[in-house]
Design a protein around this nucleic acid. Sequence first.
DNA 1: TTTCGAAAAAC
RNA 2: GUUGUUUUUCGAAA
Length: 368
Amino acid sequence: MAQPQAITYQYDLFSEQRQDVIRPFPTSETVCGASGTKAFQVKEAGEQERALTPDLMSLVLSHDNIKAAYKQVKRNKGVAGIDQMPTGDFAEWYSQNAETLQSELYNGAYQPQGVKQVEIPKPNGGKRKLGIPTVTDRIIQQAISQVLNPIYERKFSDHSYGFRPNRNAHQALKKGSEYVSEGRVIVVDMDLKTFFDVVNHDRLMYLLSTTISDKTLLWLIRKYLQSGILIDGVVSQRTEGMPQGSPLSPLLSNIVLDELDKELERRGHKFVRYADDCNIYVRSQRAGERLLASISVFIETKLKLLVNKEKSRVCPVNHTKFLGYTIQRDGSLSIANESVKRFKEKGFGVNRDARKRIKPCPTGGSTM
DNA sequence: TTTCGAAAAAC
RNA sequence: GUUGUUUUUCGAAA
């Protein structure tokens, strides 16, 4: 590997002809005798260890991966970022600038652009701050996410249901009602305060480095975490938290909260987590309160996250809502219809029969 | 078999 | 002025 190889390949995202990216620079790390350019498949993630992930950037920037990322971003129909380039223009832009972009990404010179901040109202009246990266940055992040996702999928806890392929809220509810059917009718409802605002960058980067050894990729992710926020023309650098609205955020949040899953598993608890909404099922109020106290300490000292003490609580399962439903003490699910609730507020008399009864949960071991 | 899009839910 | 991920349903095309 004396000389950097010439880049001669097709950049057109619409052409069927393609040639995969040849890495323009030699790998900085040498991995115990293995040839640096030897291709490895992410899907064969069976025995993947940190030593096998020194060159994920090639996968991130491969033609197929970028093309898939572009399609995904385009399908979301999001608006342009601060550079005003709409999603539809990326293909043409990329055909002109792919070489420069890829070189910068490979040698670490790439600097993500600022994030446009937008506030939108939440259903419950509050405001939600969104960070909108440029189309280019959304596509790069999506491309990273597509590579990291299969690597992390096999490491994630079976009790985690949010933002994961082939998993949905209903499966989480089914698992929760199974635990209730076993007699765990008290729930510890953990609420993490403004999760996206307080994630510790150093801790997240450390977690990533235990699985990912591609330093170029790690630095790129760190740059995305730190990417500046543009408010009224002034760019301020972010020191903690991650932008809500970037394609990488859901995966990174699961990586951070996987530590919580692993700790709860280590302690042998029965729980279900959907994003930052974590429910632990126990048999008595006293056990629940003791658990809430000790897990809160773990979350705040070890994970460096904040527990919302006002909204976290211990109560019988049928006194709280989880993912839009309420689990009854017999393990059945009921849904509180929002429109019914609005009727009630407007003065139409509504009795509790307005809550629609959903089928009881069978304790089946069926997968998927 | 595959591809695409619209619309709903969860966070 | 409206981001992101996942899931599901419906529909269309070859």
